[in-house]
Simulated assay, not measured.
Amino acid sequence: MAMSVTISAATDDDVEQILKLQYLCFQPEAERHGDYGIEPLVQTLDQLRAELDAGYVVVARLGAEVIGSVRATVEPDTTARISMLCVHPRMHRHGLGSRLLTRIEEHVRTERAATRYRLSTGHADEVGLRLYRRNGYTPVDTVASAGGRATLVTLEKEASATAFTTSA
């Protein structure tokens, strides 16, 4: 019998697996921009634990293995900052990115009163940009990354907006 993927809130027991997954998933982004000092690749376990305490982290599991993750915090202006969406490469094209995004949006809207969602991705992340657009996000800004080697695209969506799916 095949195992099914479950999506739930992360716990402190998931932190090491999340960090390893994040490191694996963000390697291509770092390579594209020639910058291996990007946050997902230099974050420590203690920093991730602090994020888990301060915000909300969702994981996708296949059995006991964490195969996807996403995080969010809600700012005082009720904008949810969504970050670090990642899915294990062997699980791409199964809809997990959209499922994780939907779950975190639902949580911050209903439990944390978010009225808008905001996230950023590299301008060359065609897969990510397509995923976010399919889920109702629109680009609102572009800025140079902290290291200056990449351009980040910021996308937003109103919490009341309904996500839609189109063929990729």
Rank of each mutant, 00 (worst) to 15 (best):
M84G: 06
T110G: 07
Y56H: 14
D53A: 14
Y132P: 02
E111H: 15
L24T: 15
G128S: 09
R112N: 07
V70F: 09
R116W: 09
V66I: 06
H33L: 01
R90P: 00
V153F: 03
P40G: 04
Q47L: 06
C86D: 01
A54L: 12
E39S: 12
L21E: 02
M91L: 10
Q27A: 06
A72V: 04
L101M: 14
V58S: 04
A146R: 13
A161E: 14
E111P: 02
D125I: 01
G55E: 04
R149L: 11
E39H: 08
L152N: 14
V153E: 05
G37H: 11
T165M: 11
V42F: 07
V66N: 05
A146V: 11
Q47Y: 03
M91G: 04
R49P: 00
S69K: 03
L131E: 04
P40T: 10
A64P: 03
R81C: 06
R81F: 00
L119I: 08
L119F: 06
Q22W: 02
V57M: 03
V87H: 01
T78H: 15
E65D: 12
L100E: 02
T11E: 12
L155P: 05
A124T: 13
T11K: 15
V59W: 04
L96W: 02
Y132E: 01
G68C: 03
T6C: 08
Q47I: 02
R118Y: 07
R109W: 08
A161V: 03
S83E: 12
M1R: 14
A168K: 07
L48G: 04
E51S: 13
T11N: 07
R99K: 15
N135W: 10
I38F: 07
E16T: 12
R149T: 13
D53T: 12
P76V: 09
A64D: 13
G37K: 12
A163Y: 12
G128L: 05
C25E: 00
T11M: 08
P40I: 02
M91R: 12
A9K: 14
P28Q: 08
D14L: 00
P89D: 07
R134H: 13
E111C: 09
H123Q: 13
L62V: 00
D46S: 14
S167A: 08
